[in-house]
Amino acid sequence: MNIFRLTGDLSHLAAIIILLLKIWKTRSCAGISGKSQILFALVFTSRYLDLLTSFISLYNTTMKVIYIGCAYATVYLIYAKFKATYDGNHDTFRVEFLVVPVGGLAFLVNHDFSPLEILWTFSIYLESVAILPQLFMISKTGEAETITTHYLFFLGLYRALYLINWIWRFYFEGFFDMIAIVAGVVQTILYCDFFYLYVTKGEGRSQLSIPT
């Protein structure tokens, strides 16, 4: 464990908590893509099945349980408790165009053709594009609540910190995982446009207006 990975995990945790609290406190999921949240729940489910087979550390297990719990709680709030505030008309990204290719790629490009490894690979590829429905929804509505932009900032920052963690691990431990790195680069690139807007326009505006 190094500082980049730890701050990366904490940034990820912050994003997940910010979103859950935003929906719970405002009792509204307006502007939030339920589809992205379903994809994240799918990412955590397919990646953390090893909770049932191996114990790595208390930290590892605790974080996985928190991530999975919060992901499903968020999906529940969006599609059940506050479904009246769910903006389905703008959350129209065709997620099957993400899940099917990613599923196929996981079968073709992986480290080992075992069920757990293929599911892990699927979760890595899926996570890199899981935010697209959310970014698509924001581009359609042309705006995002400030709290939603903070959520996206920390979510994008987490994988960027993981990239630094992988550079650190390659340099000091000779460890590298090509699949995770390539997917992590793609994932972080998808946020670049948002990062630019967040930094340049985030200050002092109540709504982040993205030019459609």
């Binding site: 990975r5 995990d9 990820h12 090893d50 191996s54 790595i56 550390s57 590892n60 974080m63 996985k64 991530y67 480290h111 490894e117 892990w120 993981y162 963690n165 460890f175 590298f176 995982d177 090509m178 699949i179 995770a180």
Partner: peptide, 10 residues
Amino acid sequence: LDSQTDKDEL
């Protein structure tokens, strides 16, 4: 260089 994968990362 072969890619190693230890699943201790989240």
